[in-house]
Design a protein around this nucleic acid. Structure first.
Lengths: 205, 205
DNA sequence: AAGACAATCTACTCACCAGTAGAAAATAGA
DNA sequence: TCTATTTTCTACTGGTGAGTAGATTGTCTT
């Protein structure tokens, strides 16, 4: 049995409602940025999609730069989380790397991950850009560490970790540009297929 | 001995001077687009770098969309040329693919190639976008053909050509985002290294 | 010499859009 | 009930930048 819902909200409810609205703004914004591009999307457009007016957005977020910055930060947090999860995983280096790469690719086909890939530094303010870079560097270094671990335990071929990380990141970022969310192939199968060809290379064995 | 240069120009000289100026506009524009981004670069900025005024640019090119479109078209032509050259190369499929990929990566670290990668469709007008897509599709299909040839002659591992092409393109486009032209590593060595890790994969042999 | 054409300039217009002022309505707390 | 706070609106400002009008100067062609 539920208790009859009161129309009066507790402070917790109010604050989480506020949070939900903020999130809705970011979600609408990121989808529109991905569809038409950041510069082709005005905050009036975002507001219209949500059925509110532009000042409402400014009530929840400081300015357009902050909207974009929060979007990419969400995406980057998801990637960092994935890196952390793989680091703690048991198993050989290559298995942990593969798990990470697969998740990495999947995130990059999702709203916020796509936005990370599609956002070039110049779109952000100098301050946001700096933090954007710092977060991306963290992810790059996590990927390199996983690679080094695998080379050490012999489960990954002895290649230059830096070059491998660039190659992998590039290949797995790319779907953010071409993958159609409405398409038939699911992100999970695309991710698995891409990781598979990258692991094996194209030289026959 | 040179003949004393006449201050009067032949029609050929005049028309090639015009072409040279047009090219100079595109070269200046593409470099600024790559440095600060298309939307952060006004045609006034480009004109200023060339020491002329904005209407001078409009004398050589129709509008800003056309400036960008010509830039990406130059880059895409270079890529198509590389594809054509590899197609006609003798040797096994894998060697021809590797030659193409290496050149592909190098072009993507050059002015116009970088612009191709960094330009997202939304920045172009619908008409230009359509041609942009058509050219990119040509390059993609050339790459897939090289892959299929190699699989057929047994020099390339039997993988899904589509997925492999996506993975390779992504990995070799990525330097357009991170490579610093002023940096120590040359495009040629980066290209070779990337192709090497992609050919071998990261699973040990 | 006269008219056409090429190259370039200064000085505009016009649309768009980020961001703000200030009011109105609702809600909360005293 | 009265005041403070939150949420939201309409209506504005101000800057930027694409693109144009029209003049100027020089250079061919006839």
């Amino acid at each position: 049995m539920e208790s009859p819902p009161s129309p009066f909200q507790t402070p917790q409810q109010r604050s989480s409602a506020r949070q939900a609205k903020r999130d809705a703004v970011l979600r609408a914004a990121v989808q529109m940025f991905n569809e038409r591009g950041f510069h082709q999307t005005s905050l009036d457009d975002v507001a219209a999609r949500l059925g509110v007016s532009k000042p409402t957005i400014y009530h929840y977020l400081g300015n357009k730069d902050q909207v974009l910055f929060e979007c990419v930060t969400i995406g980057l947090s998801q990637l960092l989380e994935a890196a952390e999860a793989s680091r703690q995983r048991p198993g050989q280096g290559i298995d942990r790397l593969i798990a990470f790469l697969t998740r990495y690719a999947e995130i990059n086909m999702d709203d916020f991950g796509r936005c990370v890939v599609r956002t070039s530094d110049e779109a952000l303010s100098p301050e946001s850009r700096q933090q954007f870079h710092a977060l991306k560097r963290q992810i790059d270094s996590a990927m390199r560490q996983l690679i080094r671990d695998g080379i050490e335990d012999g489960s990954i071929a002895p290649v230059d970790p830096k070059m491998l990380a660039f190659a992998l990141a590039g290949a797995l970022n790319w779907p953010a540009r071409w993958h159609n969310p409405q398409g038939a192939e699911t992100p999970a199968t695309i991710a698995a297929d891409l990781v598979h060809v990258l692991a094996g290379g194209f030289r026959p064995r």
